[in-house]
Amino acid sequence: MASSTDDSTPPDNMAPQPAMPEVNRLTAADITASLKAGFSDFLARPVMSGFFGLFYAVFGILFVWCLVWLGKIWMIIPAAVGFPLVAPFAAAGLYEMSRRLQKGENFGWSEILTVMANQRKRELGWMAFVTLFIFWVWTYQIRLWLAITLQKASFSDFEGFLNIVLFTPQGWTFLAIGTCVGAFLSAVLFSVTVIAMPMLLDRETNFVSAMLTSVRAVSENPVVMLGWAAIISVTMLISLAPAFLGLVFTLPILGHTTWHLYQRAVSPAEV
């Protein structure tokens, strides 16, 4: 007697998993073209784009102020250096703006903010967890190496902390170790998020597949992606100098550019 259930047929409630997208080869010309497109998106909606940069900058200023208020002077430099690690998640609204501009769609604040709010129901929330976890690891290891290398040092203000870090052998050791560990963590976070963040906003997929696709894009285009990471790092660090206010302009442009680079790095989603 034949079974009423065909073992070769999946249950109705099991949706087929989307295939992993194809990763394309990139060149320096792709970064140049993406930067031009990103700058064009910024100029198309400068107020809305600048709002996201301003929000990020104000959050950074308040974050540093809280560290001063709490007496965590030693955390200011690590926080300022590690703060750009969470920028990819902050750029979600910019990705959505670029997506709509690319399609020629009209949109306002409500459309963009609604899409951002809806991300809490999707996989982008898990990517936020990954990002914040790596940022937490960054701050924790800085505290660890600070205790090991500067255990006999004392400082009561930010200027005293700078003098110890910049003009003592123990401070140089702390900077060297912190730089190496920070570079490693930044490389890991960049590899798993640079393509994953815009990909999760653009198509229905899970965050693990998005991270794997991002890592593939970086591993198959190491020179180009390393160049893009260097551009992001230098631009963001320079933007922090004028009290974080440079981020009002640089964060939106980098966010829009990342969207266009993602479009070039990954094959379009199947309709």
Rank of each mutant, 00 (worst) to 15 (best):
R264K: 15
I148K: 12
A80H: 00
K121Q: 13
S49P: 07
N118H: 13
L245I: 08
F83D: 02
T131Y: 05
K103R: 14
P88C: 05
N118Y: 11
L226G: 15
S156Y: 15
A243L: 15
F83K: 00
H260A: 12
H260K: 12
S49E: 07
L261E: 01
T149S: 14
G38F: 07
F59W: 07
G60W: 00
M20N: 12
T32H: 11
E270C: 03
K72E: 00
T179Y: 15
F59R: 08
W74L: 06
D41Q: 08
W69C: 02
R216Q: 13
K121C: 01
F42C: 06
M225I: 06
Q119M: 13
R143H: 12
L35T: 13
L113T: 15
F161D: 01
G60S: 07
M14Y: 10
Q141K: 11
W136R: 07
M20S: 14
L146Y: 13
L94Q: 01
L146F: 13
I231W: 03
F158T: 03
Y95N: 08
I77P: 00
R264C: 03
F51L: 14
V215M: 15
T32V: 13
T149N: 13
A19Q: 11
P16S: 12
Q170C: 04
L150A: 07
S239E: 04
T114A: 13
I112K: 01
S219G: 06
D7S: 14
F207T: 04
V248F: 09
L240Q: 10
T235H: 03
